[in-house]
Amino acid sequence: MPKPTKIANSLRYLRFTSGEMTQADLAARVGVTRQTIIAIEQGRYSPSLEMAFQLARVFGVPLEEVFQYPDAEN
């Protein structure tokens, strides 16, 4: 089954490099459930633009360091 979203993300890496932040901590800082963070990390959910910016702001990085979109259709 294809992945529901083509948007890739670096959330797991960013959490790890931010003092091994837990999914629960990140969820609390963005104001979502831990299950939503898990779903985003696994590519099962594309967050809204607003949530994407909030996630990037937590790590203090530009949006494209958190989310990436492939250039061409594969």
Binding site: G31, T33, R34, Q35, T36, P47
Partner: peptide, 9 residues
């Protein structure tokens, strides 16, 4: 003590 619903829900 935690959110039980968000935009994904």
């Amino acid at each position: 003590g935690a959110r039980h619903s968000d935009e994904r829900d």
